[in-house]
Structures are given as structure tokens and as C-alpha cells.
Design a binder for these strands. Structure first.
Lengths: 142, 142
DNA sequence: AATCTACATTATAATAATTCTAAACTGTTG
DNA sequence: CAACAGTTTAGAATTATTATAATGTAGATT
């Protein structure tokens, strides 16, 4: 199946040149069943270990940020020490497993619609996101 | 008013030695009407400029983290490039002004209680927090 | 009040994450 | 297929944070 053609077209659509590196990254990120949460480090590892593709760290950063700017990826702030990215770019909520540092998507239906009563004058709401931190039941709470 | 006595006692209560630096930091952080949101950098600036107190950067980091561990401060993840801390340590929600990078506390009453329908097996919920990103009304959306 | 000891502070070095730079490379356009 | 603009690259630079090891200090003990 000519998966890559899709990526080439997709990249063109948003005005990014379909270079070898970008296509390879698309393959890693989007040939998946589920949405994928990762750090830059995770991605570099996957590219080099699983895909046997050596891409400069700077390129991974550049490309991830290019993807983000174009709406291919979404950045998620959970841990101030790590940048997570999400291949699910729609507004949605997350569970964060504090034991494993794993991010889990939350369906719209899992959380009731959130009603914001206050509004900041002169400002419009861009997004409303919920983060549910979970941890092992039998463990001392952090 | 002997404000510092309170801080000395408070620090003792949680098992932190009331050193000059810690007391000074308490003054900057807690002699306020409203809760205070800051980055380490903000705090260092305040200490040196407003309080004329030169404290080593390492000490500010150590002390902020000591305060956090003891429940004096709460870390907030909004921007993966900056660590924010909050003098309001209760579970509460935030507005984040994307124009000014300002964090604004959200009263419990401003947001309806959030009902989580899904639960992750074997995990308990530690916290549920909402972040509402706002921006100027007349500005191109990010 | 002098002494002791464990904890704190400090300046500096080290580390880690990210961005910058400048040269080499490569899609795309004509 | 030549030329150009956008890309990639290695490595340097920058920034945020943490570790280190020497010095200082709060609080207990004399």
C-alpha cells in the first residue's frame, strides 16, 4: 500500500516540502491505530531504533515544530520538565499516569461538558482542557 | 507587625529551618492579598530588585522545591518551557492569558464540578484540573 | 555564651533540553 | 537540467536546572 503518497500530499497541502525526513517522521507518527503521545526523545529513539533512520536531532525538533505549526501535532503541557506532543490535534482531555508518565486520551464522552461561568473581559476562550492525574491505588500519594 | 514570626513558626511546623533566605522568600511570596503565580526567574528578580536581597540562584531553586515538597507551593504546568509556581496550594483551576503569559486563578464557583465517567483500572484520581486558555478578542488566533 | 553538628547556602561546574549557525544538500519550478 | 528557495546537518551556543564541595549558620548541648 502506497501510504507515503498520502503523506506527500498531506505535507504539500499545508505547504511543507515532502522531504525524506518528513515523510519518515509521518510514517512513524501516523501509521498507527491509536493516537500517539511522545516526547522528542521518544521520537528520536523510535526513528533510529525501529525505523533504522538516522535523523539529526535538530531536524527532529524543526520538523516537529513545523508539524505543530501546521496543525499536524499538538503540544501538551503536563510535566514542566518534558514536552509532550499528541497526534490527536482535536481539543480533548487527558489522563496522566504519574507512575509510568504515560498520557492517555480521554474521549469527549468520558467527561461532561465544562461550563465556564467567569469570563475575562476582552478575552475570548481559545481552549478548555482537563488533566486528570492518576496513580497506583496502593501507593503513597505524591 | 511581626510578620516574620509567623513565617518562622510556619517553617518550623513543616520541618524546615527558618533561615534568613527562607524567611525573606516567605515575605516575598506570602505577604500578599492575592495568590501569586511566578517562575523562578520572576522570584529571583523580585528578591534582588524589590527586596534588595541577593540570594544565590541555587538557593532559590532549592528553597522553592523544599516549599513545594512541604505543601507551601504548587507547581503548575502550562507552558512546557517555563515552570510556574502558585502560592495557592489547593486544587483549583486556571485561566492562562496567552497574550501576556499571565496565570489567573479560577474560583471553584466559576467552573461546575467535573464529572469523570471513565476510570483507569487500578488507578486512583489524584487531581482534576482545568486550564482555560484565553487570548485577546481582536487578535488572530494562535 | 562557647561549642558542636546537621542542615543550608553559595559560587561554580556539570548536565540536559532546546535553539542557532553556517555550510552542504535537495525538492521544485521553469 | 539549472537555479533557487527551503531543508538538513553537525556542532556551537544558549537556557534552565541540578550537582558539588567548601563555607556558613540555626539550634541543641554543654
Amino acid at each position: 500500500m502506497p501510504k507515503n503518497c498520502n503523506f506527500i500530499e498531506k505535507l504539500r497541502e499545508v505547504g511543507l516540502r515532502p522531504t525524506k525526513q518528513r515523510i519518515k517522521m509521518c510514517e512513524v507518527l501516523y501509521n498507527r491505530e491509536k493516537t500517539f503521545h511522545f516526547t522528542i526523545n521518544d521520537l528520536v529513539k523510535l526513528l533510529s531504533e525501529k525505523m533504522n533512520q538516522k535523523i539529526s536531532l535538530a531536524t527532529v525538533y524543526n520538523t516537529v515544530h513545523a508539524f505543530e505549526k501546521k496543525g499536524y501535532l499538538k503540544e501538551i503541557s503536563i510535566d514542566s520538565h518534558k514536552s509532550y506532543f499528541d497526534t490527536n490535534t482535536s481539543a480533548h482531555h487527558h489522563f496522566f499516569d504519574e507512575d509510568t508518565h504515560e498520557l492517555i486520551d480521554c474521549d469527549e464522552s468520558d467527561i461532561d461538558k465544562i461550563n465556564i461561568r467567569k469570563n475575562i473581559t476582552g478575552k475570548k476562550i481559545n481552549s478548555v482542557e482537563v488533566l486528570v492525574r492518576v496513580a497506583s491505588d496502593n501507593q503513597t500519594q505524591k
